[in-house]
């Protein structure tokens, strides 16, 4: 079996896992299972990112997105408790709308589908130089944005923010 065939099989498995996790997140009765399935979607997407050749970014996605963001959502859902259900009347119309939306989304990017995806080879040094030499200002702004958002979140959730 050639490496490209093997890559295709891995990609198919990762894609099936990701879509299955997304469907599970959609149909789960309890909010906490839905949030946990979101974590599985994140892991599946990270696997696909790794297969595209961005191994470091895949690790970053698992650490920051699955490790922090999804965990935050899971704990918040545990704090809030049981969910409130869904609009059964809307289901046929919503399904048709979502299918049309996905079709339109796919059609709009279909022109790019003939392009070949190459597995990229990037090393940590290249990324580090790029990030801390060329995009250092953006990095500082991002750090300030994250810090201010953290303070904002704490204020909103605290008793003081309520008054």
């Amino acid at each position: 079996m050639s490496p490209s065939e093997l890559l295709l099989i891995y990609m198919a498995l990762a894609s099936a896992f990701t879509i299955a996790a997304a469907i599970l997140s959609l149909v789960a009765k309890e909010d906490v299972y839905s949030a946990l399935s979101l974590g599985l979607v994140g892991l599946g997407v990270a696997a696909i990112i790794a297969l595209l050749g961005y191994g470091l970014l895949s690790v970053f996605h698992i650490l920051v997105y699955v490790g922090a963001t999804v965990t935050f959502v899971v704990f918040s859902v545990l704090l809030i408790g049981r969910g409130v259900g869904w609009e059964k009347k809307l289901l046929p119309a919503a399904t048709a709308t979502a299918a049309l939306l996905a079709l339109a989304y796919f059609a709009s990017i279909y022109v790019l589908s003939t392009a070949q995806v190459r597995a990229v080879t990037l090393n940590l040094e290249e990324m580090g130089v790029e990030l801390f030499a060329r995009h250092v200002l953006s990095f500082v702004f991002l750090a300030f944005a994250l810090a201010s958002v953290m303070i904002e979140g704490l204020l909103i959730a605290s008793k003081k923010g309520e008054k």
Partner: peptide, 14 residues
């Protein structure tokens, strides 16, 4: 690229 784009479209729809 069409395979990954199809997965992306499916996730977007879901």
């Amino acid at each position: 690229a069409v395979y990954v784009l199809a997965v992306s479209a499916a996730l977007f729809g879901i």
